[in-house]
Amino acid sequence: IQLFSRPDFLGDHFSFEDDQAALPASFRPQSCRVHGGSWILFDETNFEGDQHILSEGEFPTLTAMGCLASTVLGSLQK
């Protein structure tokens, strides 16, 4: 999965292949690309809070990911 700090796959980005119990504190994903398989994104660290399940594809905004525009993602799980 690739996470981007701005909508439309712009800004800083991080790529992950494994579960992340905590995303970098200063990084707030605003768009993402899922390459193969599914990922669960969580509103809180340690895989807690609301879950957003994404299958392979491109998600140019938080709302395209099924999140509110104000959502701050905290962790993710493959």
Rank of each mutant, 00 (worst) to 15 (best):
54 L>Q: 05
24 P>I: 01
65 M>K: 08
61 T>W: 01
46 N>K: 08
45 T>R: 14
56 E>M: 09
48 E>Q: 15
21 A>P: 13
14 F>D: 04
4 F>N: 02
71 T>E: 07
76 L>Q: 06
21 A>G: 08
55 S>W: 06
68 L>G: 15
50 D>Y: 08
68 L>M: 14
51 Q>M: 11
42 F>I: 04
3 L>D: 02
41 L>G: 05
61 T>N: 15
40 I>K: 01
78 K>L: 11
41 L>F: 03
69 A>Y: 10
10 L>E: 13
63 T>V: 13
74 G>K: 15
50 D>N: 15
70 S>G: 15
47 F>T: 00
27 F>N: 02
2 Q>G: 00
61 T>V: 02
67 C>S: 04
48 E>G: 14
35 H>N: 12
19 D>Y: 06
28 R>K: 14
70 S>M: 04
30 Q>A: 09
42 F>P: 00
72 V>S: 14
48 E>V: 09
52 H>C: 08
9 F>D: 02
71 T>R: 08
21 A>M: 09
47 F>A: 01
74 G>D: 05
12 D>C: 10
47 F>Y: 11
7 P>L: 05
41 L>I: 09
73 L>M: 09
73 L>D: 04
67 C>P: 03
71 T>M: 06
46 N>T: 03
19 D>I: 02
52 H>L: 08
12 D>Q: 13
9 F>K: 00
54 L>S: 03
72 V>E: 14
37 G>A: 08
67 C>V: 10
17 E>F: 10
27 F>S: 03
53 I>N: 10
44 E>H: 10
49 G>V: 04
17 E>Y: 15
66 G>I: 03
1 I>Q: 13
37 G>F: 02
25 A>V: 12
58 E>W: 06
34 V>G: 05
16 F>Y: 12
6 R>I: 03
3 L>S: 04
34 V>I: 12
50 D>A: 15
60 P>L: 06
4 F>A: 05
31 S>A: 05
7 P>A: 09
51 Q>I: 07
56 E>Y: 07
5 S>I: 01
11 G>V: 03
15 S>K: 12
59 F>W: 09
73 L>F: 14
59 F>A: 00
32 C>H: 09
28 R>E: 09
8 D>P: 02
54 L>C: 05
9 F>W: 00
1 I>L: 05
33 R>Q: 08
16 F>I: 04
14 F>C: 11
37 G>L: 01
56 E>T: 10
7 P>R: 09
14 F>M: 13
38 S>N: 09
68 L>Y: 12
27 F>L: 07
23 L>V: 03
38 S>W: 08
57 G>P: 00
59 F>R: 03
39 W>V: 00
59 F>L: 03
54 L>F: 04
54 L>E: 04
76 L>W: 05
37 G>V: 03
24 P>Y: 04
68 L>C: 15
36 G>S: 13
25 A>M: 12
12 D>K: 09
65 M>T: 11
66 G>N: 07
26 S>P: 07
7 P>F: 04
47 F>D: 02
56 E>A: 10
52 H>S: 06
28 R>H: 10
36 G>L: 08
12 D>P: 08
34 V>R: 00
48 E>H: 12
27 F>K: 04
65 M>A: 07
3 L>K: 00
9 F>Y: 11
55 S>T: 15
59 F>C: 04
47 F>E: 01
40 I>M: 09
45 T>W: 08
56 E>F: 07
8 D>Q: 10
2 Q>N: 08
50 D>M: 11
43 D>T: 15
31 S>R: 03
78 K>A: 03
71 T>K: 10
23 L>K: 03
1 I>G: 01
39 W>A: 00
44 E>V: 04
67 C>R: 07
22 A>M: 13
71 T>C: 11
24 P>E: 04
17 E>R: 12
66 G>L: 02
3 L>F: 15
74 G>I: 06
51 Q>D: 08
43 D>Y: 06
38 S>R: 11
24 P>T: 01
65 M>W: 08
62 L>R: 08
9 F>S: 03
2 Q>M: 09
21 A>L: 09
3 L>I: 06
62 L>P: 09
23 L>Q: 02
19 D>E: 07
5 S>H: 07
28 R>D: 05
69 A>V: 09
77 Q>H: 06
67 C>I: 08
63 T>Y: 11
52 H>G: 06
61 T>D: 14
21 A>Q: 10
72 V>R: 14
68 L>K: 15
9 F>P: 01
37 G>K: 00
3 L>Q: 00
34 V>H: 05
34 V>S: 02
42 F>D: 02
72 V>D: 12
73 L>I: 15
3 L>C: 00
73 L>G: 09
12 D>T: 13
1 I>A: 02
22 A>N: 15
52 H>F: 13
47 F>I: 02
52 H>E: 06
73 L>P: 13
46 N>I: 05
67 C>L: 13
44 E>C: 11
19 D>C: 00
72 V>K: 15
25 A>K: 12
57 G>Q: 03
33 R>F: 00
21 A>T: 10
27 F>T: 04
48 E>A: 12
25 A>P: 14
13 H>I: 10
64 A>L: 05
4 F>D: 02
6 R>C: 11
18 D>T: 13
29 P>E: 01
1 I>F: 07
54 L>W: 03
8 D>Y: 11
13 H>P: 00
3 L>P: 00
54 L>H: 00
7 P>M: 08
68 L>Q: 14
20 Q>R: 07
12 D>R: 11
32 C>A: 14
17 E>K: 09
69 A>N: 15
76 L>Y: 01
26 S>D: 14
10 L>K: 14
38 S>A: 12
36 G>N: 09
35 H>I: 15
42 F>Q: 00
16 F>N: 06
1 I>S: 03
47 F>H: 01
57 G>H: 05
8 D>W: 11
64 A>I: 03
1 I>N: 06
28 R>Y: 11
50 D>C: 12
30 Q>L: 10
72 V>A: 14
35 H>K: 14
41 L>S: 03
5 S>F: 04
75 S>P: 08
44 E>K: 15
22 A>K: 13
68 L>F: 09
49 G>D: 05
1 I>E: 02
68 L>D: 15
59 F>H: 06
4 F>P: 01
39 W>K: 01
19 D>R: 01
69 A>G: 14
10 L>D: 11
77 Q>K: 15
57 G>T: 06
61 T>H: 08
21 A>N: 10
74 G>L: 11
2 Q>D: 14
28 R>Q: 12
26 S>T: 12
49 G>F: 00
55 S>E: 15
18 D>G: 11
69 A>T: 13
44 E>P: 07
43 D>F: 04
74 G>S: 12
43 D>L: 07
55 S>I: 09
30 Q>V: 04
1 I>C: 05
5 S>C: 00
44 E>R: 14
9 F>E: 01
77 Q>V: 06
35 H>C: 09
62 L>V: 08
66 G>P: 00
15 S>N: 10
20 Q>A: 13
5 S>V: 02
2 Q>A: 08
56 E>V: 12
58 E>T: 07
50 D>E: 15
22 A>D: 09
39 W>P: 02
65 M>S: 09
61 T>R: 06
48 E>T: 12
60 P>K: 05
19 D>V: 01
32 C>G: 04
58 E>Y: 07
31 S>Y: 07
49 G>R: 03
60 P>G: 05
64 A>Y: 00
34 V>M: 00
76 L>P: 00
46 N>Q: 09
45 T>G: 11
48 E>Y: 08
61 T>C: 10
27 F>R: 01
25 A>N: 09
30 Q>K: 09
61 T>K: 02
51 Q>V: 08
56 E>K: 14
51 Q>N: 10
15 S>A: 10
29 P>Y: 06
27 F>G: 01
31 S>G: 05
66 G>K: 04
13 H>F: 14
64 A>Q: 09
10 L>T: 13
78 K>R: 15
6 R>N: 08
6 R>W: 06
41 L>R: 00
36 G>K: 12
45 T>L: 11
26 S>E: 15
61 T>E: 07
18 D>H: 10
13 H>E: 14
58 E>H: 07
32 C>L: 02
22 A>V: 14
53 I>S: 10
6 R>D: 14
26 S>H: 14
27 F>Q: 02
